[in-house]
Design a protein around this nucleic acid. Structure first.
Lengths: 152, 152
DNA sequence: CTCATGTAGTTATCATGGTAACAATAGGAA
DNA sequence: TTCCTATTGTTACCATGATAACTACATGAG
């Protein structure tokens, strides 16, 4: 998240760019603008997921499992690989999703250390409930000047 | 933060775009790519700040005070206004910066509820130490294909 | 087989974001 | 002046990211 509301003016950046060679004022401006825009998008999406009892990460876990229907479930580690978060966060997130009944976890028959994570019917239903508007939201946010009602 | 490493393929998005009108596949792709890029940038910057005993937010507090040299310090609320975080987070952040000696806080002579926050010489020195490379980093991150060594 | 090493996932603890509810003060209406 | 209401900042507590260190099991060298 990037919290600065008023980004540095072009002038301030160029002041720095003048003093330090190898500094591309356009790139600096892009980077700041990008982080600010993305932060607002992420907030908007988190709010949307919260309305559906999810979070961005919990949603992505469901997506990632659903995205590989040829596999009969994924291990916790495989999910972690696809979503760069730390292992403990994934442990907690999986536990949460199991409690909500959106995924089911079984012991891996081939490896007593491992677990196999699968979507439950409720999990698939939740995806179906959330996905369409998710894409609509992304579509709106992706357009320039998204006008999401943020920032006075 | 947006954690998905492998973004949905063009094909998957268009599959959805076909089913739901008012869905702009380009915009969806842009939004996802933007959030992913920004997340990696923010991580990179946080790592940089951590090397200097700061965090993104603590740094921005210093910046925001420094940016208004005509004012003799800002109130906690004014800082909060410029950085959209919640008030309790700002209370904690200000306390942290006072402990590190980078800012000093006094009672507001005109309002017994308020506080005036000012940079200390150490705070100004910290900014001078951190700012140049911050802009260099932003400049590098802002260019396309930043090649920051992330993601195998 | 046995043991050293590696891997899967968890636990403990911290950092840092949020909301709700509060105390203390300010400031205007009566 | 006396209250009612708004504002400043804090406290208490929760959510969710991280790292370090752990348990339990796997696996290959000997």
């Amino acid at each position: 998240m990037f919290f600065l509301k008023e980004l540095p003016t072009r002038l301030m950046i160029e002041g720095y760019a003048a003093k330090h060679a190898s500094l591309d004022a356009d790139a600096v401006e892009d980077a700041l603008g990008l982080m600010r825009r993305a932060s607002l998008m992420v907030r908007r999406l988190e709010a949307y997921f919260a309305e559906h009892g999810l979070s961005q990460l919990r949603f992505l876990v469901l997506i990632v499992i659903d995205r590989e229907p040829h596999r009969d479930g994924l291990s916790v580690g495989e999910i972690t690989d696809r979503l760069d978060v730390s292992k403990p966060v994934m442990t907690r997130t999986v536990a949460h999703l199991v409690e909500s009944g959106l995924i089911a976890v079984e012991a891996d028959p081939n490896d007593a250390r491992g677990k196999v994570v699968r979507l439950t019917p409720a999990g698939r239903a939740k995806l179906a409930e959330v996905l369409p508007e998710y894409f609509v939201l992304l579509s709106a946010l992706g357009r320039r000047e998204p006008d999401t009602g943020e920032e006075a």
